[in-house]
Simulated scan of single mutants.
Amino acid sequence: MKPSEVRALSDEELQKKLEDARAELFNLRFQMATSQLDNTARVTTVKRDIARILTEMRARELAVAKTAAEN
């Protein structure tokens, strides 16, 4: 998922994507532990997606706090 795609999502969609990505990461780790994971690079990709989502959520949170402080 590209950063521009993350920015285009609504808050609810971001929360849903975060839940899905965390569930996928859990499943990937489980597959890795049982030696059933074929594409180990997918773990890194999912971790980066989670980080991008969390970063965007925090940026929006700070923007709301900034506008509230200005008023």
Score class of each variant (00 low, 15 high):
1 M>Q: 04
2 K>F: 09
2 K>P: 00
2 K>W: 03
3 P>V: 09
4 S>K: 10
4 S>I: 11
5 E>A: 07
6 V>F: 04
7 R>E: 14
7 R>A: 14
7 R>P: 02
7 R>F: 03
8 A>C: 03
8 A>K: 11
9 L>R: 15
10 S>E: 14
10 S>Y: 03
10 S>Q: 05
10 S>W: 00
11 D>R: 11
11 D>F: 02
11 D>P: 00
12 E>T: 08
12 E>I: 06
14 L>P: 03
14 L>D: 04
14 L>C: 07
15 Q>S: 10
15 Q>H: 05
15 Q>F: 02
15 Q>G: 01
16 K>E: 12
16 K>P: 02
16 K>T: 12
17 K>H: 10
18 L>R: 14
18 L>T: 05
18 L>E: 06
18 L>Q: 12
19 E>H: 06
19 E>P: 00
20 D>M: 10
22 R>C: 02
22 R>T: 03
22 R>G: 01
24 E>Y: 00
24 E>R: 15
24 E>W: 00
24 E>H: 04
25 L>G: 08
26 F>R: 15
27 N>C: 08
27 N>A: 14
28 L>H: 03
29 R>A: 00
30 F>I: 09
30 F>W: 04
31 Q>W: 06
31 Q>F: 06
31 Q>L: 13
31 Q>I: 02
32 M>K: 10
33 A>L: 09
33 A>R: 12
33 A>K: 13
35 S>N: 14
35 S>T: 05
36 Q>Y: 02
37 L>Q: 12
38 D>I: 14
38 D>K: 15
38 D>P: 00
40 T>H: 12
41 A>Q: 09
41 A>E: 14
41 A>L: 04
41 A>N: 06
42 R>G: 01
42 R>W: 04
42 R>I: 00
42 R>E: 15
43 V>W: 02
45 T>G: 07
45 T>R: 13
46 V>C: 08
47 K>W: 00
47 K>A: 03
47 K>R: 12
48 R>Q: 14
49 D>Q: 10
50 I>V: 07
51 A>D: 15
51 A>K: 12
51 A>M: 06
51 A>C: 01
51 A>R: 14
52 R>N: 10
53 I>T: 09
53 I>E: 02
54 L>N: 13
54 L>T: 13
54 L>A: 09
54 L>M: 08
55 T>G: 07
56 E>F: 00
56 E>H: 07
56 E>T: 10
56 E>Q: 14
57 M>T: 09
58 R>Y: 15
58 R>N: 07
58 R>D: 11
58 R>L: 07
59 A>I: 12
59 A>E: 06
59 A>W: 07
60 R>G: 01
60 R>P: 05
62 L>K: 11
62 L>R: 11
63 A>R: 06
63 A>M: 11
64 V>A: 12
64 V>L: 08
65 A>T: 05
65 A>L: 07
65 A>K: 15
67 T>R: 14
67 T>G: 02
67 T>C: 04
68 A>N: 14
68 A>H: 11
68 A>L: 13
69 A>M: 09
70 E>I: 08
70 E>T: 08
71 N>Q: 05
71 N>V: 09
71 N>Y: 12
